[in-house]
């Protein structure tokens, strides 16, 4: 195989894995948008908050320690225990369901029937609130998240793909990050689970019903409040998974919340209302930006990854506003 083709393949593989992660973040948006028509600006912060909570719980940090110490003059910081990662993830999930309930109970219940722009503004407020709450609860320092996911390149894959070079001395086999591989598997499983829940369960069906017609959903006895808590919980869970993976990559810090921005072009490309669209959009953008950087990048001085996705999405918007797989707007005359 010629060298450039081998490198190209490696780039595509890495792009696919990055794409799965983008898709994962985009999924959180799609779920909430589908069920309630809310574009959730806070999705990225939700990831940050989930990751911070996970680290805090694992390390036995006392929440609001600074606040308590300042108010009572005590010097407490840790419970003095470490919790198993799996248990901590479950506990974090409980916290995220709590967040979902609070968001519904104290914010969106009062905004039923308001304009989408008002709901959007509310999520911006929510984003900053959660960001502050996370800092107060767990401290604003950069934290290391280690839930036991493997790190570094996979030697096994390198060794077992070396033969593809057919004696080419410069080719050492494909370099694939093990964390990326695991993340891809987790994300794929999560996506399958989400599709299964929304297609084949009673509450999944109710969720799609609510997305179609609030009034009709109410009329058949579906509780909007319950469905919205349900959806925000799932979005919280997706945010947690994304937070774990990105947190393991680059530490838990504020910039984690910016991964939400990466999801925007994915959504434009795939369509705001489609779960498969989010996945395919993520893959296209992941592969596209890596390939573009690999081929065109050197000609224009690199750093194309920063803008490629947005330009691609923009071009797409012009020709297919509902996105690749967005719901067709059904109009009957």
């Amino acid at each position: 195989m010629p060298e450039s083709l081998l490198y190209g393949t490696e780039v595509v593989l890495n792009g696919l894995m990055a794409g799965v992660l983008y898709a994962l973040v985009a999924l959180g948006f799609v779920l909430i948008y589908k069920a309630s028509g809310i574009f959730n600006y806070a999705q990225g912060v939700l990831s940050l908050f989930a990751a911070m909570t996970l680290v805090g719980i694992m390390n036995g940090q006392i929440p609001f320690a600074h606040l308590i110490n300042a108010a009572l003059g005590t010097e407490i910081h840790h419970f003095g225990w470490h919790i198993n990662a799996l248990v901590a993830i479950l506990l974090t999930m409980v916290v995220m369901v709590g967040v979902a309930w609070c968001v519904q109970r104290f914010v969106f219940r009062h905004l039923i029937g308001q304009e989408p722009i008002i709901l959007f503004m509310a999520t911006i407020g929510l984003a900053y609130f959660l960001e502050g709450l996370g800092d107060i609860m767990w401290g604003s320092d950069i934290k290391k998240l280690d839930v036991g996911l493997p790190q570094g390149g996979s030697l096994w894959i390198e060794e077992n793909t070396q033969w593809l070079g057919f004696g080419n001395e410069n080719f050492y086999g494909f370099f694939l990050d093990r964390l990326d591989l695991i993340a891809t598997v987790i994300a794929a499983l999560l996506v399958i689970a989400l599709v299964a829940v929304s297609q084949y369960t009673k509450h999944g069906r109710a969720m799609r019903a609510v997305a179609d017609d609030h009034q009709a959903a109410l009329s058949v006895g579906i509780s909007l409040n319950f469905i919205w808590v349900f959806v925000w919980s799932i979005a919280g869970f997706v945010a947690l998974v994304a937070g774990i993976i990105w947190g393991a990559k680059s530490g838990v810090q504020f910039s984690l919340s910016l991964i939400a921005l990466k999801a925007l072009p994915v959504l434009m490309l795939g369509g705001f209302t489609s779960i498969p669209g989010a996945i395919i959009g993520g893959l296209i953008i992941g592969v596209g930006e890596k390939l573009f950087e690999f081929t065109v990048g050197p000609l224009v001085g690199g750093a194309t990854e920063n803008w490629f996705a947005y330009v691609l999405a923009l071009i797409f918007l012009v020709f297919r506003p509902q996105g690749l797989m967005g719901e067709k707007i059904i109009e009957r005359v």
């Binding site: 109710a206 179609d212 017609d213 009034q215 959903a217 009329s219 058949v220 719901e327």
Partner: peptide
């Protein structure tokens, strides 16, 4: 239970899924 004016079906659900939401 009310059947609303103008039908109000869940457009993107299939006919059968629509019926099943009634059994929520």
């Amino acid at each position: 239970i009310q059947v609303m004016e103008g039908r109000h079906c869940f457009e993107h659900l299939t006919v059968e899924e629509n019926l099943l939401t009634g059994a929520y």
